[in-house]
Amino acid sequence: MSTDAARLAGPRFRQAGKARRIGRLGGALALWLILATIALSTLYPLFFLVATALRTTQDYRLSPAGIPHELTLDNIHLAFSEVEIGKLALNSLMVVVPAVIIVTVFACLAAYALVHFRFPLRRSALVVVVALMALPPAVVLIPIFKVVLEAGLLNNRLGLILVYSALNLPFSIFLMASFMRSVPDELLNAARIDGAGPLRTLWSVVIPLVRPGLLTLVTLNFLFMWNEFLYALVILQKETNRTIMVGIAQFQSHWEKNLGVVSAGLLLSMIPPLLIFLFFQRDLARGLTSGAVK
């Protein structure tokens, strides 16, 4: 509209068009500056934590936000020797790895049944899965705690492993089902005619085709469980087996005078999420957006 008007009505309007273009350029620049500022705020934690972890406390006091001058590795050493960050990380892995395996296997089996078989109540089962997905974990904290308590699994890693598996299962089944829908039924029928049983078909036909989806599932679940706090705090209360996030939340108050150690601990606890972020960003994004767009 504006370009037509400018063409028809001569130089005065062309001038206006130019002003408009400058205005748009200014708008684009303003947008870019806003985006850059936000990006700075989301990247700054990494800089801050690396800087604070690698400098002395005196140096930090001089300019907390600035560039470090007195470098030291003491904080990292203290994080390992005093905070036992390595042991905390191991505790977390001993919960997260089995739970991720359980969730992945159970979700694959269930999604396979829900997508590639016809049976009574199939629709209802899907509805139940979606409904459970919307259930916020905090709301059922007490009754889940009670189940774990009565099963004698309090302060036992198996308790947290099972709870994590259950909490992340609905979402995982949903995600896996959405990936498995793209596997054509003809392929499954062909495998069946060749005499492959259902498990064999799942393993040699379906799984290879949904491998990217599987990667999404594993990385996302690992991230959720590694970062989880509330259930870890409640179910593993003993100091010997608490997870890394619980350890970090509790040690911060002891080290208020030495933020370098706190930063070192935080940074070390962020290594697995950061690696996942760097190498599997696309898989994470696919997992997080697939629910919304489908």
Partner: peptide, 28 residues
């Protein structure tokens, strides 16, 4: 029975640690 068998592990875990607790929350 195949689909039921495939669903069983997930269903067992969900009933034990999610569906039952949800009902128990109301009771408690």
């Amino acid at each position: 029975f195949t689909p039921w068998l495939l669903l069983a592990p997930a269903a067992a875990l969900l009933v034990w640690l999610l569906a039952y607790p949800l009902g128990d929350a109301v009771h408690l």
